[in-house]
C-alpha cells in the first residue's frame, strides 16, 4: 500500500476551493491543502511537499509555480506540468476545462487519473457557471436597453408600451437585425439628440 497522495489546491475563492476539495474527497483518500494567498506562493507550495498541485489556468500566479519545475528550485523533487506526454488527451481536456496541474515526476498515471477526472469535472462546472453568469448579466443589460428604447418611443410618438415593442420588432425584422441592436441604436441616437 503506497502512501496517501498529497494534493495542493491553489484557489483564492473559498467557495470554489471547497467545491474542489469536496470532489477530490469523493474521488479518493487524499491529503489536501488549500492555499489562498498569492504572495510567496512557490515557497508555501514547496513546504507542503505535494505530489500534485492544481491551479486555475487563468491565474497569473501560475508562473510563480514554474519555479518548482526547475530542478534547482525550492522543491527537491522535480515537477513537470502534469502531462505525462503519453496522455495528451487528458492534458487537452484539463486545459479546456481551465485547469492546470503540476505533478511530481514519475507519478503513476493510474494514481493521477482519478484526481484529474474529479478536478476536470469540477472546473467544467465553474466554466459553465461563469458562462451562465455572463449570460444573465447580458440578458439584464439587454432588458434595460429595451426598456429605455420603448420609453423613448412611447414619449416621442405617444404610443403604448406594446406598440413600442411591436415597432422595434418590426424594424428589426425589416432590417435583419436583432431587436436589442435596434433598441441600442435608438438609445444612442436619442442620447446624441438630447
Amino acid at each position: 500500500m503506497s502512501k496517501r497522495l498529497s494534493i495542493v489546491v491553489v484557489e483564492k475563492d473559498r467557495d470554489r476551493a471547497r467545491l474542489i476539495v469536496d470532489s477530490l474527497r469523493a474521488a479518493g483518500d487524499y491529503e489536501i491543502h488549500v492555499i489562498a494567498e498569492e504572495s510567496a506562493l512557490a515557497r508555501k507550495v514547496a513546504e507542503k511537499q505535494p505530489d500534485v498541485v492544481l491551479i486555475d489556468v487563468a491565474s497569473p500566479s501560475r508562473d510563480t509555480l514554474e519555479e518548482l519545475a526547475v530542478a534547482s528550485g525550492p522543491l527537491d523533487r522535480p515537477v513537470a506540468m502534469f502531462v505525462d506526454r503519453s496522455d495528451d488527451n487528458l492534458t487537452k481536456q484539463a486545459i479546456e476545462a481551465g485547469l492546470s496541474a503540476y505533478v511530481v515526476d514519475g507519478m503513476r498515471p493510474d494514481r493521477l487519473k482519478p484526481i484529474l477526472d474529479a478536478a476536470i469535472t469540477r472546473f467544467h462546472m465553474f466554466q459553465r457557471m461563469r458562462k451562465e453568469l455572463e449570460q444573465t448579466k447580458r440578458a439584464l443589460e439587454e432588458r434595460k436597453v429595451l426598456d429605455r428604447a420603448k420609453g423613448i418611443l412611447m414619449k416621442a410618438r405617444g404610443i403604448t408600451e406594446d406598440e413600442a415593442y411591436a415597432l422595434l420588432r418590426k424594424t428589426a425584422m425589416d432590417q435583419g437585425r436583432k431587436v436589442v441592436d435596434v433598441a441600442q441604436a435608438l438609445v444612442t441616437a436619442a442620447g446624441l439628440l438630447s
Binding site: 487563468a58 501560475r62 508562473d63 509555480l65 495528451d88 492546470s100
Partner: peptide, 15 residues
Amino acid sequence: SPSWSAIRDMVTLGR
C-alpha cells in the same frame, strides 16, 4: 494570456 506558462502551453498544445 494570463501568464507565460499559459502562453507556452497554448503554443505547444496547438491552441
